[in-house]
Amino acid sequence: MNKLIDLLTHRHLVWQGNREQPVTETIASGFAEVDSVLAGGFPLQGVIELDTGVGIGELRFLLPSLAKQTRLIAFIHPPAQVNAQALVHAGVAAERVLVIEPKTTQEALWAAEWCAKSGACASVLLWQDDLAIHQVKRLQLAAAGGEAQVWLLRHDIRESFALPWTLSMRLLATEEGVEATVNKRKGGWSSRPFKVNFQSQWADLVLMPEPSAEIFPFQAMQHAAK
């Protein structure tokens, strides 16, 4: 039994309840709902998985925290052209943005690893679906060496839970913003889905519920008629 537990722990499939404690510094996400669930915000360093579709608000989910960074932010193999105007409007200075378009998966991983451990980048965003455990561990070492965040933006990956993430979250689109779920958190617990409202950041892009018509009780209407 002990050998089985040791094996599962080594493969990051078991968390010990008596080790529930913050494992790294955090940076505020810009959303009170997220900071409450994550006990302060996103990890300031480590490898973070974001299981998300493309164009559902995943970058808007990250922009408030990215705007707080003072070092470079690297975008590696983004699925569409990075909109510099939108980044500047969100508070991310254009001179702090680095866009890398690798030709192969290996080049993308190499770029992410070196950007993370260089010390020049605060955050590295990599769009990459297929990853092995040893590749995530290399990125973890790079993130620790350069004190950086490495965000892996992926979609519907079944082997995700077995990989050694510092944090793993899933995003789904909603009319108010996104629905977030913490799938896995180093030194912490997963969460139930919770809503993240973009109203305070991008009011024009949020569909707010229409106010319902005012309803008067029948007796009150009769009294008013008298």
Rank of each mutant, 00 (worst) to 15 (best):
A108L: 06
A108S: 13
A108N: 13
A108T: 12
A108V: 13
A108F: 14
L109M: 15
L109P: 11
L109T: 13
L109Q: 09
L109V: 13
L109K: 00
W110L: 14
W110H: 13
W110M: 02
W110A: 10
W110E: 12
A111E: 06
A111D: 08
A111W: 09
A111L: 11
A111R: 11
A111P: 02
A112R: 08
A112Y: 13
A112T: 07
A112M: 12
A112I: 05
A112C: 08
E113C: 08
E113K: 15
W114H: 12
W114G: 00
W114N: 04
W114R: 05
W114Y: 09
W114C: 01
W114E: 06
C115H: 10
C115Y: 02
C115F: 01
C115Q: 03
C115K: 12
A116R: 15
A116K: 11
A116N: 12
A116L: 12
A116S: 05
K117M: 04
K117C: 11
K117T: 07
K117W: 00
S118F: 12
S118K: 15
S118L: 08
S118I: 14
S118C: 08
G119I: 06
G119V: 11
G119A: 03
G119D: 06
A120D: 14
A120T: 15
A120G: 01
A120I: 07
A120Q: 08
A120S: 10
A120P: 02
C121M: 04
C121W: 01
C121P: 01
C121A: 07
C121V: 09
C121S: 03
C121R: 05
A122D: 13
A122E: 12
A122C: 14
A122I: 13
A122T: 01
A122K: 02
S123T: 14
V124Q: 00
V124R: 12
V124A: 03
V124P: 02
V124F: 14
V124D: 01
L125N: 09
L125Y: 06
L125R: 00
L125V: 09
L125D: 06
L125K: 08
L125M: 06
L125G: 07
L126Y: 01
L126V: 11
L126G: 03
L126I: 05
W127Y: 10
W127G: 00
W127E: 05
W127S: 00
Q128N: 03
Q128Y: 04
Q128E: 07
Q128L: 11
Q128M: 07
Q128I: 14
Q128S: 09
Q128F: 12
D129R: 15
D129I: 15
D129T: 15
D129Y: 03
D129K: 05
D130R: 11
D130Q: 15
D130F: 12
D130Y: 01
L131K: 11
L131R: 00
L131G: 02
I133H: 03
I133Q: 02
I133V: 11
I133R: 09
I133N: 10
H134Y: 14
H134K: 07
H134E: 12
H134T: 13
Q135F: 10
Q135D: 10
Q135W: 02
Q135K: 01
Q135N: 09
V136D: 13
V136M: 00
V136Q: 01
V136P: 02
V136Y: 08
K137H: 09
K137M: 03
K137I: 10
K137G: 04
R138C: 01
R138T: 04
R138K: 06
R138L: 11
R138A: 15
R138N: 10
